[in-house]
Amino acid sequence: MSKSSSKLSLDKKHNITGWIFLTPAALLIFCMSFIPMIQAFLLSFKMGKGNALKPAEPIFANYSRMFADTVFTQSIKNTFFYLIIQVPIMLILALILASILNNRQLRFKGLFRTMIFLPCATSLVAYAIIFRTLFANDGIVNLVLVNLGILNSPYSFLTHATSAKVIIIIGLLWRWTGYNMVFYLSGLQNIEYSIYEAAKIDGASPVQTFFRITVPLLKPTILLTAIMSTNGTLQLFDESVNLTDGGPANASITMSHYIYNMSFKYVPTFGYAAAMSFLILILVAILAFIQMKVGDKRD
């Protein structure tokens, strides 16, 4: 779409219509997210346990406290480790799968799609049990690796720092790749299939088509999934709690998991928990801002 046509539609009436269209959603978000957020923000300047809260002294005490908190700094490191490794792999894999499955000549498309999507429909409870079973000392993964001669004796995956993190990443990839694929598949439908046919006639290789057509035209969707995955990873909770319980020795604990512990498992320290939550907000906001700057251009 061109700049001139969008300028044309920008008369006053349409401007107001636009505002009316987004009001219900915006109002709901204001009530359900911003009001509680403001309260949480105010809370982040309070100290104390449970209901016995008093103003923080000095005012940023909760914010400075987190940088001296070794468990929390460890959780930041872990979370960024997941973010940097897992998100790019997952999005690229999802993109490749989506473009393969978009091929009209492919047979059993529906079956493949459903199978690849299924992991994210599985309830967390089952997924956690299944993964722990697979990677147990006498689990299938060890069985295979030992029989293939790669390992001499079973390796205790969840009790070693690096392998525990890797398992969380594998878990995330397994669970969320199909989920992201859905967005790409639906995004691809808004691209005229004839473009692909034309490219084929012009003798473009699948790789060329992928980089020259699919990626640029899917840019809005890629941006969407990138922001969502960044947000999801920085708030990662389920995997840390259910797969490794943050262990061994906090080697895989995430920020949200620690915040949850501080709020519900330990003696509640809501002021501090709120302060840590706002650090997550700031981190996600910065990353999302960068992603928007790079990817959200109308041209």
Binding site: L27, L28, C31, A40, L43, K46, N51, L53, G271
Partner: peptide, 21 residues
């Protein structure tokens, strides 16, 4: 309903979280 919730929200917003209103 939305309105009533909004009012309830505005009301609670005036109380600091955790003061046990």
């Amino acid at each position: 309903k939305l309105l009533s919730l909004l009012m309830a929200g505005a009301m609670t917003a005036t109380m600091f979280a955790g003061c046990g209103g």
